[in-house]
């Protein structure tokens, strides 16, 4: 797609040639004259039904609007107010609709999530119960004489005497002293 840039012209620029330069008097005539001219031409053409001729006549007459009187301040402020309020209304309506739709969506999403939660809860419960039943079955099975398992006797256990606390060894080797000469430290990174 190509986009053409059209320079925008301000209204003052657009109006000024038609008002100030009467370079083309053939086409542009003041409104008063146009009205005067219209009357004698329409009078003899007493054919109201056929409207082809006046159209042709009118083609070369461009009426010029009278300069718009400056709008009063209250009107302008009201217009501004109307524009602002319509924007605000539009925004509010949009927000309301989106909030409403979100709320409606949340409700259904909540219901679905709630069902999932309930499902997980019951499943968790079921798994725990099954786990414990299995534990019991294993313990019961282990008590059967043919499993080859023997009960633990106190003498089967090995208890180790805690070793006496070792005497504190005084450090014989002096701690390493950092070589603080500037040549060696300058090459090392000091930290990361």
């Amino acid at each position: 797609m190509t986009t053409a840039y059209r320079p925008t012209r301000s209204t003052s620029k657009r109006l000024s040639p038609s008002l100030t330069t009467p370079t083309t008097p053939g086409n542009i005539i003041p409104l008063e004259r146009a009205r005067l001219q219209r009357k004698p031409r329409t009078q003899p053409l007493a054919q109201p039904e056929s409207n082809s001729t006046p159209e042709i006549i009118e083609l070369d007459v461009v009426e010029i609007l009278p300069p718009q009187p400056p709008q009063p301040l209250w009107l302008r402020s009201l217009t501004t107010l109307q524009q602002v309020s319509s924007i605000v209304t539009g925004a509010v309506v949009g927000i309301t609709l989106s909030v409403y739709s979100l709320t409606a969506y949340r409700e259904s999403a909540w219901t679905q999530e709630y069902q999932t939660l309930e499902h997980y809860r019951t499943q968790e419960q079921q798994l725990r119960a099954t786990n414990e039943v299995l534990k019991h079955q294993i313990a019961e099975g282990a008590q059967q004489p043919n499993t080859g398992l023997v009960e633990r006797e106190p003498l089967d256990m090995i208890f180790l005497r805690p070793a006496p606390p070792r005497p504190e060894v005084s450090p014989e080797v002096p701690p390493l002293e950092l070589n603080l000469s500037p040549t060696s430290t300058s090459n090392k990174p000091l930290g990361y």
């Binding site: 419960q125 079921q126 119960a129 534990k135």
Partner: peptide
């Protein structure tokens, strides 16, 4: 609420 022993083994639990 489930009932468990001192080591956390379940002694009583609800099921559906």
């Amino acid at each position: 609420r489930p009932i468990s022993d001192i080591n956390g083994h379940i002694l009583a639990i609800d099921k559906i």
